[in-house]
């Protein structure tokens, strides 16, 4: 009896706190989402039914933001895992100064998103005085106007730079536990390096990759600072993701009603995404 009751009791305080943390603000958000509530008119709070949802969902920005969110999350996942695997394999080799090289390669993960966006925007991607403009000029090419002509790609570059080291870090540790004997055995059987990678190492990495997908998705869905600092969602809506769209409603238009409706919509979408995500990669996590 005790072994059932105590665990429940122990976990209740945290669950309860977490529930309060989730439920109270979420409850208030749901409540606000049915009101006409603008911070500019704090005294006017009328019940408007589903009007806020109608405004948010029929706004042409919504579908674009949904698509942008998907593109951003998906591309960064692909890049960080591809490059992460490559770097991890490379850094797992025996070479001079391995410890130091590893330390350098994982550094971007510790950099504040605001700072990395500022550095990339001002020191690298600035079309007039940025380093990239100079590099291109060495080859006789004109500068690329990053945030105007390839805004989404620019954001993807910045975010991938931040998250690739995370993937590298996990995959590298995981590579260190590859069964050396098995690897030798396969090679003795005549497999080349690629085949060894494909049939021994890659299966070994499937679990860490699942972990990377899970953790990165959680953070990438709510990417905000990088967009705010560089493009503020533009040009037009080219880099507005759902998090940024809700932000525009809440802190640029100060329309709490619509922002709340937007928040609720995103929560529902996030739950659907989480459900499928865990279905897809869940077996790797057990």
């Amino acid at each position: 009896m005790r072994s059932n009751l105590v665990p429940k009791l122990t976990s209740y305080p945290t669950i309860t706190l977490l529930f309060i943390w989730m439920a109270v603000p979420l409850g208030m958000t749901i409540y606000f989402s049915f009101l006409r509530y603008s911070l500019m008119y704090p005294d006017v709070r009328e019940f408007t039914g589903l009007l806020n949802y109608e405004y948010f969902l029929t706004d042409f920005a919504f579908l674009e933001a949904l698509w942008n969110t998907f593109v951003l999350v998906f591309s960064v996942l692909i890049f960080s895992i591809l490059f992460g695997t490559g770097f991890a394999v490379l850094l797992n080799q025996n070479f001079f100064g391995r410890g130091l090289a590893r330390v350098l390669a994982i550094a971007p993960f510790f950099i504040m998103p605001t700072v990395s966006a500022l550095i990339w925007k001002n020191l690298f991607m600035n079309p007039v005085s940025g380093l990239f403009a100079w590099l291109l000029s060495l080859f006789g090419l004109g500068p690329i106007d990053w945030f105007t002509h390839v805004p989404m790609i620019s954001i993807i570059i910045i975010v991938s730079w931040q998250w690739t080291p995370f993937a590298t870090l996990i995959l590298l540790t995981s590579l260190q536990s590859v069964d050396k004997d098995q690897l030798e055995a396969v090679k003795l059987d005549g497999a080349n390096n690629f085949q060894a990678f494909r049939y021994v190492i890659l299966p070994h990495l499937s679990r860490p990759i699942a972990i990377i997908i899970l953790i990165e998705t959680i953070f990438l869905l709510t990417i905000f600072a990088e967009i705010f600092v560089t493009t503020t969602g533009g040009p037009g809506l080219a880099t507005t993701n759902l998090a940024f769209l809700v932000f525009t409603e809440a802190l640029l238009k100060f329309d709490i009603g619509i922002a709340s409706a937007g928040g609720v919509v995103v929560v529902i979408l996030a739950n659907i995404a989480a459900f499928f995500l865990v279905k897809m990669i869940g077996k790797n996590l057990q």
């Binding site: 603008s38 105007t148 533009g234 040009p235 037009g236 640029l252 238009k253």
Partner: peptide, 28 residues
């Protein structure tokens, strides 16, 4: 008016999009 900053922010987004050559001025 209180609504202006929201409206003008969205409108200027559209104009900057036209400036970037993503859409035409008419469309913006």
């Amino acid at each position: 008016i209180p609504e202006f900053q929201g409206i003008a922010t969205s409108v200027s987004q559209q104009i900057s999009s036209a400036l970037a050559g993503k859409i035409t001025v008419e469309k913006a």
